[in-house]
């Protein structure tokens, strides 16, 4: 049983991280950024996101109207810049509140359960 849980741990950790990817991305898109720049900005804050997850996510959020995008070709290579749309700002506010509630609840749960799992 322990072995199974241990083997599944990387997948569960990845799932946990994926849950916060949308909020993390939205938090950094009040000003326009392109994909690689956004990933670096998030990584500098200590959250590593797989590039194969983040870039498609940006396109999906754009299709859902959460982000707006535009091509900029003034640099060496054409880059697609993303920023929060009006709808995206509303979503960001709502998700931030949800995150705060979750964070508070999780802190209480983890404090009562003990941090080392014993």
């Amino acid at each position: 049983m322990w072995r199974m849980a241990h083997e599944n741990a990387p997948g569960l950790e990845l799932e946990l991280r994926r849950g916060v990817v949308v909020l993390a991305a939205l938090s950094q898109l009040r000003a326009p950024r392109y994909g690689y720049e956004l990933r670096r900005a998030i990584a500098e804050c200590g959250l590593l996101i797989e590039e194969g997850t983040l870039y498609p996510l940006l396109r999906r959020l754009e299709q859902q109207g959460v982000l707006t995008s535009e091509w900029r070709t003034n640099g060496a290579a054409p880059r697609r810049y993303y920023a929060l749309s009006t709808e995206g700002r509303r979503l960001y506010k709502r998700l931030t509140e949800t995150w705060s509630d979750l964070n508070g609840a999780m802190d209480k749960l983890l404090a009562s359960g003990g941090r080392d799992g014993r």
Binding site: G35, Y36, E51, R59, P78, R79
Partner: peptide, 20 residues
């Protein structure tokens, strides 16, 4: 309808990722 646009973006992002 998504192919060309995605290809252009993904190609540049991959170049940057791989250089990094």
């Amino acid at each position: 309808k998504q192919r060309n646009d995605t290809a252009l973006e993904l190609r540049e992002l991959l170049r940057e990722e791989l250089r990094s």
